[in-house]
Design a protein around this nucleic acid. Structure first.
Lengths: 266, 266
DNA sequence: TGTAGGTATGAATCCGACT
DNA sequence: AAGTCGGATTCATACCTAC
């Protein structure tokens, strides 16, 4: 990993600052750049799942061939970190969860997407990394999910393991609505990333944050949905993406929404 | 445990046979009575969760003091098996899951309710007991259920870890609709058991079974919702309940629905 | 039969006081 | 000091009663 990571400084039409860092969230230079940025109020992210490994060729396949149905025209960039076995994945998850917790203030939230298969591993990893695990929220993808088999319940949900860095954040406004534990939203039909989350889903997660929250961290940025949702919620977001080509796609998406690049380092 | 467990033989208005066995599903006499009954097509159950909060209430002895909000007037029977720590609970779950698998035919389903906290433990236990874990279905209790904390996502879902005894059941009818992975249904307002599941929810689970299925097993019967749902689905159900008083409440409920006792053993 | 208003409820959770 | 106990909190919903 380079000593001087590529860092793109962005400003949104509504005048919030955001950061895109190209590299690994476990890289020392990235971590110190993040530490200089802010004390984060939340980690909201969708890590690579490394799932689907009942058969060995499921594990060997690249993500796009594994997760896309045959005949799908759209091509996605393969993303990194998806070929580990489950134990390595849990261990690796514990490491980045621990690393990002060090960048968070007390009472900060972590909200980590997971499919059903990795849910036990991610909740273990959260606890190893000293987050207080507090629940599992559900994104119901509704009709968009396909059934592999009539003998199956449709895998139409994704899960969000969530917790806090120690005690809960102290202050909450009166009259604030409570956040639902199940959120229904179909998958975006126009995606630039295989696992792209709808902005409404990311917005639902961010709705839990207290009013004082300022900065949100997404160590696996992908197409940048967290940045867009954070911006809508009046928050700033630092997003890390390891894959150059995916980071470029994210920047393109943000520029298309009227974001402007203020500076690039390295 | 007695050598001669109490066994109640019931017949429903639609003329299906059901069995209620009073005792533990790990008791030898109960297990051999079940073995003589049938080869089961599914295990559908809602075991005691032995769950609880991060704080002191979690260690309180009785389910009603743990799981009911303070200040509620409604009274329920406390049930057994809810005071284990997490390691014992996982181990115990593995044992009964293994025991009941021995009573099932190839391709039989297991569908086990869990709250968010025990979900990783129950999926581990399923796998230890040699069930093939195939997914997590979600019962969305809708807006009605809530924990009064604004810093929380509402704990409005219960989860169903499900799998099969080896390969999937072979034959499925053409044109059969697929079963949803998320099912919305509010809690029954008139419950006789603290954890009573709506019959519609149990019916959703049973809708996955192949047409040839005949007998369903519920090792933690509680108020007998599985029996009622099985009867509606044209299945027979053998239900085991350890707590005498709760078994009596279940019988009363079934008699109220027009079920008749044909015979009682012991 | 329909509508409006009142009330009890939730497989909790937190905090602080007490032993 | 660590463990235990008691009471406050929360709001959308379903159900009941009154009209």
């Amino acid at each position: 990993m380079s000593k001087q990571p590529r860092i793109i400084n962005l400003v949104s039409p509504s005048n919030h600052q955001h950061l895109l860092l190209v590299g690994s969230c476990l890289d020392r230079a990235i971590v110190s750049a993040l530490r200089e940025t802010a004390e984060f109020s939340a980690v909201v992210t969708d890590p690579p799942y490394s799932s689907g490994a009942t058969h060995s060729n499921g594990r060997k396949a690249t993500p796009t061939s594994k997760y896309q149905q045959s005949g799908t025209a759209r091509q996605y960039q393969d993303f990194l970190g998806d070929a580990m076995d489950q134990r390595s994945w849990a261990r690796w998850s514990g490491e980045w969860l621990s690393e990002v917790r060090g960048l968070c203030g007390p009472g900060a939230y972590s909200m980590i997407f997971s499919d059903w298969r990795q849910l036990p591993a991610i909740t273990d990893a959260m606890q190893w990394a000293n987050w207080t695990w507090r629940g599992v929220a559900v994104w119901d993808k509704t009709e968009g999910a396909r059934a592999p088999n009539k003998a199956y319940f449709r895998h139409q949900a994704e899960f969000v393991a969530w917790g806090t860095n120690g005690r809960l954040p102290p202050s909450f406004e009166k009259g604030r609505p409570t956040a639902p534990g199940v959120f229904r939203s179909s998958i975006d039909s126009k995606k630039i990333h295989l696992c792209q989350k709808p902005i409404s889903v990311m917005g639902w997660l961010l709705s839990l944050l207290p009013q004082e929250a300022e900065w949100v961290l997404d160590p696996f940025a992908g197409s940048g949905s967290t940045i867009l949702a954070a911006d809508e919620a009046g928050l700033s977001c630092a997003a890390v993406e390891e894959h150059e080509a995916i980071a470029d796609q994210a920047i393109e998406r943000l520029l298309g929404k009227g974001f402007q690049v203020i500076s690039r380092a390295a």
